[in-house]
Design a protein around this nucleic acid. Structure first.
Length: 189
DNA sequence: CTTTGGATTGTCT
DNA sequence: GACAATCCAAAGA
């Protein structure tokens, strides 16, 4: 794996777009990133908006590390940290490696639901708060960026109540391995 | 296929 | 005390 720090040392919007098509695994379990969302420091929807707190401190740490938080008291969600206060939420994968492990962890086998949604991604990959703040370019993580250009779409972010109009959600064009269909997909590239 | 409501708890005001 | 970057089952169309 190459040094990921340069790739992540920029605003989250560009990183979120460029992560589509990359392959992400944890202990060899994972797949192709099909959906992401960007969160920026001056973004009212971002956990970092009101400054550093015990929960979000990883978002202000070095780039190319993970920020993992608990959602709705039940689920875990995984982000990749970019410049301080910015991060990319990993919202969905196309399962590729370690399918049996993912099925066992999820307790369900429907291929299209294994990793379609941020909570499902964390559950399938076995991630929780104990991994918060750890470096992405070291085991158990592996991240390989796409070799070739990837057809990508953008749209509004999901599940937030602030800054709802920003088109900072990105997806793999035509993929069904996403959490929800893009209402008005805007094609990029 | 789409919509709705409940679960559940850490975090911040 | 209110709310949350969600998921799931159940009910409706």
């Amino acid at each position: 794996m190459t040094d990921l720090t340069p790739f992540f040392s920029r605003s989250a919007v560009g990183v979120a777009r460029d992560l589509i098509g990359a392959t992400f695994t944890v202990d060899g379990v994972g797949g192709i990133i099909t959906e992401t969302e960007a969160y920026e420091p001056d973004d009212p929807a971002s956990h970092s908006f009101k400054g550093i707190t015990p929960r979000n401190r990883a978002m202000f740490g070095p780039p190319a590390h993970v920020y993992i938080y608990r959602s709705y008291g039940i689920h875990w969600c995984v982000n990749f940290v970019c410049l301080p206060g910015s991060a990319v939420l990993i919202r969905a994968l196309q399962p590729l490696l370690g399918l049996e492990t993912m099925i066992a962890r999820r307790g369900r086998s429907e291929p299209l639901l294994l990793c379609a949604g941020p909570g499902r991604v964390a559950q399938a990959l076995g991630l929780d708060g104990s991994m918060d703040g750890r470096p992405l370019d070291q085991p158990p993580f592996s991240l390989s960026l796409a070799d070739d250009p990837v057809a990508t779409v953008a749209g509004e972010r999901i599940g937030i109540t602030k800054a709802v109009d920003l088109p900072w959600r990105f997806g793999l064009l035509g993929s069904r391995h996403i959490s929800k269909r893009f209402k008005h997909p805007r094609e990029l590239n």
